[in-house]
Design a protein around this nucleic acid. Structure first.
Lengths: 123, 123
DNA sequence: CAGAATCCATTTGGATACTG
DNA sequence: CAGTATCCAAATGGATTCTG
């Protein structure tokens, strides 16, 4: 029996908190983007489609705090700041990639399910 | 090359939307809870630790709309309503279980990282 | 380039009271 | 038992302006 089964797969309070942290609008995408290797701020902003500057800042800072990303400043001109995954962050990125893949593969089906559901007569 | 790599792993706009849907505070936990088999409303409320009645209602309704859960009413007294995963929902639950497992295994490390980060002198 | 700061709209979530 | 309805607080996220 694995640890998840032993814990009834997520009844710990901490799990809920972590899931809602990594499950916000951008975290998974940022982590998946960093799988390819270290990246710089504006590079990521271009890579992660549609993210605002503020949300990228917040997301990266939260990931740094959680120990999933390290931030390295190179004092050059122009200044360079590099972000890369830690081991912890990389381990999450494996699962994150699967989740992103699932979303890619099933987004059409979900969109159709919604249309069908909304089309039924209902309050 | 798999589809995720082909799509640069999540730059589609739809992925962002789906991820933030399944990544709210409760969806993953509800789905993981339903892996064990069909369940009834108040049973799930007890199983998913800390969820309010309203949030369970909202989460289940959203999952039903997305075609991940089916809701079956048995007109008995007292009334019974059964929720169970569809194939789509079950396929997500595989990845969801991994994510919940990751969260369980690493919640301590993350908590410690946060303490360390917050302890450093910083604005 | 890499952000910090501010403002504001929307979403999310909790508590409570009520219903068939 | 299985919800609905309402109110409200907090979190989330976007846009814009400013800075070392």
């Amino acid at each position: 029996m694995d640890v998840t089964t032993a814990h009834a797969a997520g009844d710990c309070r901490s799990v809920s908190e972590i899931l809602s942290r990594v499950g916000d609008k951008w975290t998974i995408q940022v982590i998946v983007a960093l799988r390819q290797g270290p990246a710089r701020f504006n590079g990521m902003k271009r890579q992660v489609n549609g993210i605002s500057q503020q949300m990228l800042t917040r997301t990266l800072k939260a990931l740094e705090r959680d120990g999933m990303v390290v931030r390295t400043v190179h004092h050059s001109t122009p200044p360079q700041v590099e972000y890369r995954l830690t081991e912890l962050g990389f381990s999450l990125s494996e699962t994150a990639r699967q989740l992103a893949e699932w979303a890619t593969l099933n987004s059409d089906a979900i969109a159709q399910n919604r249309i069908r559901y909304d089309g039924r007569d209902r309050p």
